[in-house]
Simulated scan of single mutants.
Amino acid sequence: MTFLLGLTGSIGMGKSTTSAMFRAAGVPVHDADEAVHKLYAGAAASQIEAAFAGTTVGGAVDRAKLSAAVLGRPEELATLEAIVHPLVRAEEQAFLAQCRRSGATAAVLDVPLLLETGGEGRCDAIVVVTAPADVQRKRVLARSGMTEEKLAAILARQMPDAEKRRRAHFLVDTSRGLVAAERQVRSILNAVAGRFGRTERAD
């Protein structure tokens, strides 16, 4: 039996870093964003071009052009999600089947909008990556090309951090540094391993 952890967190909270920590601990991770990147360069590109003409270059989606076409436009965003989400879910199902075949004790679904899309129902427990709002804001605005307007549009699509934390089974606070975050990840894995009669050290 594979215990399925849903990993999520708002922009700038450190979710990608936390996901890497699970991978480093030997836990298989399905990264929804990574899956989308691959689909944009392959299976989804022609469908996206058909729906949003001029958003692909050389057979691959130009993310900047696609973002301009859907940002702040709910109907267009819904159209994009109707194309991409079924493809991502199919890859996710293949990933989970492989985890079960290999006998993995735990696996992680790394999904930015897991709670917003009702995905918690397919997970055994939810891990929310969090940080204080001022830390989040500083991190995001330091990114190349990020503006106050873009940040506002992104946050408008995301569930407030306080609500995500309320729904979480486990929290990883990345504002305390990498070592502290790694300890929190190890603690989560200890809790999961304990369900199967196994223990691991949280160094």
Rank of each mutant, 00 (worst) to 15 (best):
M1D: 09
T8G: 03
G9Y: 09
S10C: 13
I11K: 03
G14R: 11
K15H: 07
K15I: 03
S16H: 05
T17C: 10
T18I: 08
F22I: 08
F22W: 02
R23T: 12
V27Y: 05
V29E: 03
H30F: 15
D33Q: 03
E34S: 10
Y40R: 00
S46G: 03
I48C: 10
G54T: 07
T55P: 05
G58R: 10
V61N: 06
A64W: 12
G72D: 08
P74N: 12
E76T: 04
T79C: 07
T79A: 12
T79S: 05
T79I: 13
E81Q: 14
I83L: 04
H85F: 12
A90H: 11
A90V: 06
E91R: 14
Q93F: 08
L96M: 14
L96S: 04
A97T: 15
R100G: 01
R100M: 05
R100W: 07
G103W: 13
A104K: 15
T105D: 13
A106Q: 07
A107C: 14
A107L: 06
P112A: 00
E120D: 14
R122G: 01
D124N: 14
A125W: 13
A125V: 02
A125E: 06
V128T: 13
V129S: 12
V129T: 13
A131F: 07
P132M: 03
D134H: 13
D134P: 00
V135A: 12
V135M: 06
Q136Y: 01
R137D: 08
A142R: 04
G145Q: 05
G145V: 09
M146N: 09
A153D: 11
L155S: 10
L155R: 14
L155V: 11
L155D: 06
Q158S: 02
R165P: 03
H169D: 15
L171F: 10
L171D: 02
V172E: 09
V172D: 09
D173F: 09
T174M: 09
S175F: 02
L178Q: 14
V179L: 12
A180C: 07
R183Y: 01
R183G: 15
R186H: 13
I188T: 05
L189W: 12
A193P: 01
A193G: 09
G194Y: 10
R195T: 04
R198V: 12
T199V: 13
T199I: 08
